[in-house]
Design a binder for these strands. Sequence first.
DNA 1: GGAAAACTCACACAATTGTGTGAGGTGAAA
DNA 2: TTTCACCTCACACAATTGTGTGAGTTTTCC
Lengths: 213, 213
Amino acid sequence: MEKIKVLLADDHQIMLDGLKAIFAKDKSIDVVGTAGNGLEALEFLKNQSIDVLLLDLQMPVMDGLETTMHVKKSHPEVKVIMLTTNDEGSIITSLFKVGATGYLLKNASKESLIQGIKDAFEGKKVLSSHLTEKMIESLHENPKPREGEIPKITKREIEVVKLIAQEYTTQEIADALFVSTNTVATHKRNLFVKMDVKNSVGMIKKAVDWGLI
Amino acid sequence: MEKIKVLLADDHQIMLDGLKAIFAKDKSIDVVGTAGNGLEALEFLKNQSIDVLLLDLQMPVMDGLETTMHVKKSHPEVKVIMLTTNDEGSIITSLFKVGATGYLLKNASKESLIQGIKDAFEGKKVLSSHLTEKMIESLHENPKPREGEIPKITKREIEVVKLIAQEYTTQEIADALFVSTNTVATHKRNLFVKMDVKNSVGMIKKAVDWGLI
DNA sequence: GGAAAACTCACACAATTGTGTGAGGTGAAA
DNA sequence: TTTCACCTCACACAATTGTGTGAGTTTTCC
């Protein structure tokens, strides 16, 4: 089997040494070079092809995010794994948007680093387990706007809400449901009170929040 | 080290045998019993304590979801990993809501099954890599309602959108921004055209979609 | 330094929304 | 059988929104 060619980029020499030591023990990974910042990494790529780029997020001269953008533009086949100390959720979105393949924390175990590189090489997305945790948490936090605090919305009212969300006017809703505009107005009136909002805009926002529509 | 006590629950005997065979090779995992459905699993728990419950989602008599609820109520310390063939995103939310620790696909590798049990035992959340992929994808799909198709919304217009979303009336917006109501009306007018909507409700829905607010 | 884009405002009018109040009918639950 | 939630409707009026048209400033950018 061909070895996986890896380039390391980090502005701390100690980190580079540590990573090299870790990967030296694995016979399927070959560290073909190191770089002190993103710019150096790009230079390296001009002369030599690699499979995986292990990239520190925080670097002077050119940080991980910017480097990723450039690398994916000039060498789209290279898998980029971001290595970082922090675990801000905010950055992660833009990270994958620019084409990164993975995101690992620096305090990850040797095994997960090695596994991460192998996974990335095979085309898999790589996420620090810590991040996975976070994502799961957000998963069951979102659809929970405090169970008990959602008032009872009746079937008919939900129909009205949905039509309002589709930009129907009161008249159009009345026609669609075969009732008078007065009835629709009453439903809206009741909904405003139940949902504690001032107008249709607020209503639709809460409805989305509550998963009503 | 104490072995991890695992109970398997699946309505297919073959599956149970297969799982037992897989775990037999690992010296830190001890399969202490098997069950053909959720009810049997609950019965088992009355007499013997376990660490991890590997549970099939589709089962007669009592399915995985319901079983999880009962188990977490009577034995909250037990880690439940759901095992399933399908990968519907829809179910996964409720799964973690009722307290499941993990969610793995049946076509997962032996290694990931074993690792999953170990991770769960240590209190980590476990997600099939396949699912992780999906989550990552959704991560950078959401904020991308077709890049090019989002029209240019100006700074001022965004301010207006945000205030509308907060149920401000035109008059209130005018006061907040120190401009006349006519100006606000013009901004709204332009926004309706740009965003191709009929009224404020539609506007706020798209604004949310587009990540404007 | 000139064009284009963004922001501002006016005025008038139609359309729609939101509010207040009152009330009749129906089905399900107690 | 009586209560109660839900759905229905009326009428009137205030408030707000949405539209049409035109135009004067300021920023921004080439």
